[in-house]
Amino acid sequence: MKTFGGPALFLDRSDINTDEIIPAKYLTEITKEDLKPYILEDLKLPGFDPKGPRTKSARVVVSRANFGCGSSREHAPWVFEVNGITAVIAESFARIFRQNMFNCGMAAIELPKAELDQVFSHANDADAAISIDIEAQSLTMSGGGKQKTFSFSLSPFDKALVLAGGWVDYADKNY
């Protein structure tokens, strides 16, 4: 079974769009793997380096509201997938981006703003990591010598997609 979680990358802004996740000029690449070096290339945030060690080691992205807005392309979740990112945690997601995450077997987890603020309190911890239990629908934020667990909910179908490894694997097992 796929492991969800690991080192966290904090993107402290709402409305991060699919062009910032993977610039449109790379949409002609032939394979998902070809997208890998361009993750978050056009995202502008103070102190953020898309080529930096935190980006390269990240397995979870934490952001604010309306994550993945913009174009309805699968390339945005794909670039996370090929970079080893298994989950994005935000207050809310653009509908199509969210479903594309589940279809690719990755978790799109929504937390209320107050809980998300608690997760963001670890943004400067060098050891910030998040472990995610899809079955139990809980995540544990650890960093700076502290730990806190949060519950989240997924619809039964979205949970089944994630646990199966995505839509194709789900369909192979069920149809």
Score class of each variant (00 low, 15 high):
Phe48Thr: 06
Leu161Trp: 00
Asn174Thr: 13
Gly84Lys: 04
Val60Phe: 04
Asn83Thr: 03
Tyr170Val: 03
Ile39Trp: 15
Lys36Ser: 08
Arg95His: 15
Ala108Leu: 06
Ala136Phe: 12
Met1Lys: 13
Ala128Val: 01
Ile30Asp: 15
Pro50Ala: 04
Val62Phe: 05
Arg13Val: 08
Lys173Met: 13
Thr55Asp: 10
Asn124Phe: 14
Leu35Arg: 06
Trp167Gly: 11
Gly47Tyr: 11
Asp49Gln: 07
Met1Cys: 13
Asn83Asp: 09
Thr31Ser: 14
Ala114Trp: 13
Ile89Asp: 02
Lys173Gly: 11
Leu154Lys: 03
Ala90Tyr: 06
Ser63Cys: 08
Asn103Met: 11
Ser57Ala: 13
Lys148Met: 07
Leu163Phe: 02
Gly105Tyr: 00
Met106Cys: 09
Ser92Gln: 05
Glu135Asp: 15
Thr28Asn: 14
Asn103Thr: 00
Gly105Gln: 01
Ile96Ser: 00
Val61Lys: 04
Arg54Leu: 13
Phe48Met: 10
Met1Ser: 15
Asn66Ser: 09
Pro46Asp: 12
Asp19Ile: 07
Asn66Val: 03
Arg64Gln: 12
Arg98Gly: 00
Asn17Phe: 09
Ile16Arg: 09
Ser142His: 10
Ile96Met: 02
Ala108Asp: 05
Ala90Asp: 06
Gly47Lys: 12
Ala76Pro: 08
Ala126Gly: 13
Glu41Met: 01
Asp49Thr: 01
Asn17Lys: 07
Asn66Phe: 08
Leu161His: 02
Ser14Ala: 14
Leu139Val: 01
Ala8Gln: 07
Asp12Lys: 14
Met106Ile: 08
Ile89Asn: 00
Ile39Glu: 14
Pro37Glu: 11
Val61Ala: 08
Asp12Leu: 12
Met106Tyr: 09
Gly166Ser: 00
Ser14Asp: 14
Gly84Val: 00
Lys148Thr: 05
Gly143Phe: 01
Ile39His: 15
Asp125His: 13
Ala164Pro: 05
Gly68Asn: 10
Ala65Thr: 09
Asn83Gly: 06
Gln99Met: 14
Ile132Thr: 03
Gly145Ser: 10
Glu110Cys: 08
Val79Met: 07
Ser57Val: 08
Val82Asp: 10
Pro23Asp: 11
Asn83Met: 10
Pro46Val: 07
Ala164Lys: 00
Gly6Tyr: 01
Glu81Pro: 10
Ile21Leu: 09
Phe120Ile: 03
Phe152His: 01
Asp172Thr: 09
Tyr175Asp: 15
His75Glu: 11
Val88Lys: 02
Asp49Leu: 06
Met1Leu: 14
Glu110Met: 09
Gln118His: 10
Leu43Asp: 07
Ser57Trp: 11
Phe67Thr: 03
Ala87Thr: 03
Ala94Gln: 09
Phe93Thr: 02
Ile85Phe: 08
Leu27Tyr: 13
Leu116Thr: 02
Trp167Met: 15
Gly52Gln: 12
Ala107Gln: 02
Ser131Tyr: 05
Leu35Lys: 04
Tyr170Met: 10
Val60Asn: 05
Pro53Asn: 14
Gly68Phe: 07
Lys113Tyr: 12
Arg73Met: 05
Glu81Lys: 15
Val168Gly: 00
Ala108Phe: 04
Thr28Gln: 15
Thr140Gly: 02
Lys51Thr: 12
Ser142Gln: 15
Ile109Ser: 02
Phe97Ala: 00
Glu41Asp: 06
Gln99Trp: 12
Gly70Cys: 08
Lys44Phe: 10
Ile22Tyr: 05
Asp117Ser: 11
Ala136Glu: 13
Pro50Gly: 04
Phe157Lys: 03
Lys146Tyr: 11
Leu11Arg: 04
Ala126Arg: 15
Asp169Ala: 11
Asp158Val: 01
Leu43Tyr: 06
